[in-house]
Amino acid sequence: MVIITHQRDKCIGCNYCVELAYERWRMSKKDGKCTLIGGENRKGFYTVKVGDEEFAENKRAAEACPVNIIQVKKI
């Protein structure tokens, strides 16, 4: 199991995560920030649990994020 966390309010809308992990991320047309698909909002931190098969690509997205607001952890 993998937990992905996104501190959405700090997103600058650069689009890297969408390019690297398209199944999990989309740019919101509403505010130009990225949305974690399936993410649940807890005080501004969006979290989703996904299968191990999504680890590699989301880890790449986290590493590419210029404002370091994506966390990907294996549990």
Partner: peptide, 11 residues
Amino acid sequence: IYDHDLSIIKT
């Protein structure tokens, strides 16, 4: 500006 920004730009 990218395509995904166009809506927020208008807002």
